[in-house]
């Protein structure tokens, strides 16, 4: 008896800390989402699931939800596809590798908001750098108004999202690659495996745990990422580039509908939990095999 209680006793401090930081706000948000709340967070009548009902009847919210899923998938998968070759190249020994590594990592050192604002300027239709570069190269004849419509703005936002996620992902992959023993490749080469086979049969399987972790962390991070879209379009024009976080921010702080905003954040929380559970399941099944 005495012994069995020791572990619980030992985790108690961290449990209390977690409770204070995570569970307490969660309880507050749940209660906000079930009440009629004024702009200043004062609870009025209990209205049950009314906020959720009105959200699911709201076309802008539903569109933002689908767009968030698309945004997350596009940025995360795009990042992984771009990062693997970059990590492989940076793992090779070549002259100037140090500088190349620094260049790839550099965007990481700049705050995300600043990167996004710089891109807002670069994408400006009349005085932006991107248009003038494309014009100088003779690729376009007249300026493209990148941020005027979702059809051009959203793909650019995804590209920026990929760009800023690459440094972190490459770092994880480089760590993974440094743990792949060199002699495996030598053995494979003597057996007659080409570079592609070496990549497919040795590098990729050994890199898999690292790809998994990069996948999960990027998913959580990108799903909740606010600065890129906010700084470039604020989710506009006409809500056409809104993702859930920007929609949440507008609902809460611009319109002052805190109850509805709390409901949005709970829905986001639920989606992320589902992601995480699926991932944990998959990872555990693999470990068992």
């Amino acid at each position: 008896m005495q012994r069995a209680s020791v572990p619980y006793f030992l985790i108690l401090p961290s449990f209390l800390l977690a409770a204070a930081i995570i569970l307490w706000p969660l309880k507050e948000i749940v209660s906000l989402s079930l009440h009629d709340v004024n702009r200043f967070g004062m609870l009025k009548d209990f209205i049950g699931l009314e906020h959720f009902r009105s959200l699911f009847a709201n076309a802008d919210f539903l569109a933002a939800t689908w767009r968030t899923l698309f945004w997350t998938a596009a940025v995360v998968i795009g990042t992984l596809i771009v990062s693997v070759p970059i990590a492989l190249i940076l793992n090779e020994d070549f002259y100037g590798r140090g500088i190349a590594r620094i260049l790839i990592m550099l965007p990481w050192a700049i705050s995300l908001t600043m990167t996004a604002i710089v891109w807002r300027w670069a994408l400006n239709g009349e005085s932006g750098m991107l248009n003038s570069a494309l014009r100088d190269l003779g690729i376009i004849n007249s300026n493209i108004q990148w941020l005027a419509e979702a059809s051009t703005a959203f793909p650019m936002q995804i590209l920026i999202g990929i760009l800023v996620s690459v440094p972190f992902t490459v770092t994880i992959f480089l760590g993974g690659l440094s743990s792949v023993p060199e002699d495996l490749y030598e053995a494979a080469a003597t057996e007659g495996a080409g570079r592609w086979d070496q990549f497919r049969l040795i590098t990729l399987p050994l890199l898999k745990p690292f790809i998994n972790i990069a996948f999960v962390l990027n998913t959580i991070y990108v799903f909740n990422s606010f600065p890129i879209i906010w700084a470039t379009t604020q989710g506009g024009p006409a809500n056409s580039t809104d993702i859930l976080v920007t929609y949440l921010y507008k609902t809460a702080f611009r319109m002052g509908r805190l109850g509805e905003a709390a409901a949005v954040s709970l829905i986001m929380f639920a989606i992320l939990i589902v992601f995480t559970i699926i991932y944990v399941r998959l990872a555990m099944r693999e470990e068992k095999q």
Binding site: L123, G125, E126, S127, S142, Q145, L147, A148, E149
Partner: peptide, 21 residues
């Protein structure tokens, strides 16, 4: 008007004015 009006905030239009565009 300047093309792509939905990509110009108030500050952006003011800047175009300062640039004589």
């Amino acid at each position: 008007t300047q093309p792509g009006v939905t990509s110009y905030s108030r500050e952006d239009v003011q800047n175009l004015f300062k640039q004589g565009k």
